[in-house]
Design a protein around this nucleic acid. Sequence first.
DNA 1: AGTTGGTGGTGACACGTTTCAATAGGTGAC
DNA 2: GTCACCTATTGAAACGTGTCACCACCAACT
Lengths: 336, 336
Amino acid sequence: MSETVSVIDVAGRAGVSLGTVSNVLNRPERVAPATRARVLRAIEELGFVRNEAARQLRAGRSRTIGLVVLDIGNPFFTDLAAGVEASAQRSGLSVVLCNSNDDTSRERHHLSMLQEQRAYGVLITPVANKTPAIEILRRAGTPVVLVDRGSNRQQCSVAVHDRVGGELAVTHLLERGHRRIGFVGGPVSIKQVSERLAGARSALRAAGRAESALTVIETPRLDVASGRSTGERILAIGKRLRPTAVFCANDLLALGLLQDMTRRRLSVPSDLAIVGYDDIEFAGAAAVPLTSVRQPRSQLGHAAMELLLEEVVDPEQHRHRQVVFEPELIVRDSTA
Amino acid sequence: MSETVSVIDVAGRAGVSLGTVSNVLNRPERVAPATRARVLRAIEELGFVRNEAARQLRAGRSRTIGLVVLDIGNPFFTDLAAGVEASAQRSGLSVVLCNSNDDTSRERHHLSMLQEQRAYGVLITPVANKTPAIEILRRAGTPVVLVDRGSNRQQCSVAVHDRVGGELAVTHLLERGHRRIGFVGGPVSIKQVSERLAGARSALRAAGRAESALTVIETPRLDVASGRSTGERILAIGKRLRPTAVFCANDLLALGLLQDMTRRRLSVPSDLAIVGYDDIEFAGAAAVPLTSVRQPRSQLGHAAMELLLEEVVDPEQHRHRQVVFEPELIVRDSTA
DNA sequence: AGTTGGTGGTGACACGTTTCAATAGGTGAC
DNA sequence: GTCACCTATTGAAACGTGTCACCACCAACT
């Protein structure tokens, strides 16, 4: 069964040296056509398959890039992953998708795994602001690109301007005549959350409103379940202080909240207007189609891969870059 | 920067041989506590990280398992993946998630990549019925488990009884008094689709209805967009023949169709009742909460990993098994 | 003192590939 | 016929780990 076929076996069968077999595989133009054909036939006949581990060992690095995301259950990240994978495949790289699940210890685990695998590069949406493991990776020579997260000049990053997104959302709600607005999201330790919140605040300021007009409702996670349990907390607020509109830090929260409102037979947007974030495919398909801040998801993935490849190709010349995309507000029924 | 630290460097620093370092890493109990501590300190000081490629080369197989799914945009598969990953992590394995996207050539590409990587095992939901690449993999000694797909005695598989699922869905619609029923799904070359359709037919037979009562509307893919464009095709059917209820082969189709009906200001379930399949999280959160056939998603992943590990541990003794879970109908408003 | 047994540690080899300096063989110029 | 040159091919070394047969040492027993 498992009799392994190596280049040596191929060489034997084709009557050449193993060096020639390797040349056929890696620089076919250096090998005479007749020999090349003979070698290829031997490969075919023996069912030879390159051993990636040996190649990696020799090369000192693997041809795998790691993509570490916060929540694989969030379509935002799977769309991002699809973009990354498409780009990677074009360069003959494979992608291992890691789910940190908002947990720094799982994140650490994944990163050390990637380091053991001598990953070609790492794309990551970090859980916390400081992630020492990233520094270690980079020092070991592995390029790292931050995804969906801005950064200082010390590293490459690809992000969407979260503060602007927050401004777009809340400005829209103010224009619709809402005066008491809620912000749903958390934990605020996640940079995306705090930035979107900052955007919301700045929109209020710009409109000459007091920041107290913003009720912040912090959630433990950014998922549908957290959104679902937010309805109760909002309704617990006295009618006079209760927000008439909320801006959710992502679409999962918004969908959960929307579901809860529907179950309580409350109307969206009359009883509560809702704005989401990410504009995942399900946002438009929701009970009440969701107004949401759209992010260019697969473009993010492509751009990240581009930065990564730049750095791999010429680490010396490379200057870290920070790519920032602009978000776009998609207005639908949930704020009509 | 990239000065690589190997066991030899560690051995030098700790004043032992490289064999001892290896023992500290793999069979610590064989090494005297004092020596062990010295080696561990050297590892710490030098920042040594095992080279996975070298380990793999030596071991002849990697510690990575491949999971090949049909559509990474379908939450059914990401939930499945989460289950697989949890199981894998417990065994110290990592998972590379591959998206075949219903495309046999991409599937082939992924499988050959996995073969080059000498994958520890492969879990796959194959695109087509016959997949020669799987046979090749297995012959090379890589265990393969079919996921979400039954199989003959020749290989391990983990599935949910799709025919029963189809029966559940359509029986439910018949009980609700629907007489003309539609089936939305495709391509039928996908086994899950044809099985669910067969279940639908068998439910009709069991109820003593003619199979002509079932209108089959084939879609190019199993995604939201395909569902969205199905509304028009259903409405094009003359009122007398038009189904009053449809069973969709998965929730993405159902959500797309639901969205389209809502946009057309038609009512679900009065104008058209809808049953989905998979019971993904977004099904309950939809415009009209969706009746759906639930599959134990992460359990599928766990069971698949279990079968895989069984086969790896003792390939000689191993007897292929076919695990089949039973689906469950979750009734919600879309058929009320 | 010699034998036995056990513990802790050694060092050479193998895994399969890529790379590169060295070589063989052939061609054309003088 | 010799030499230089070019192309096609060779063979050995290296990548970093795990394994295993072997050795050194010590304690205990005869």
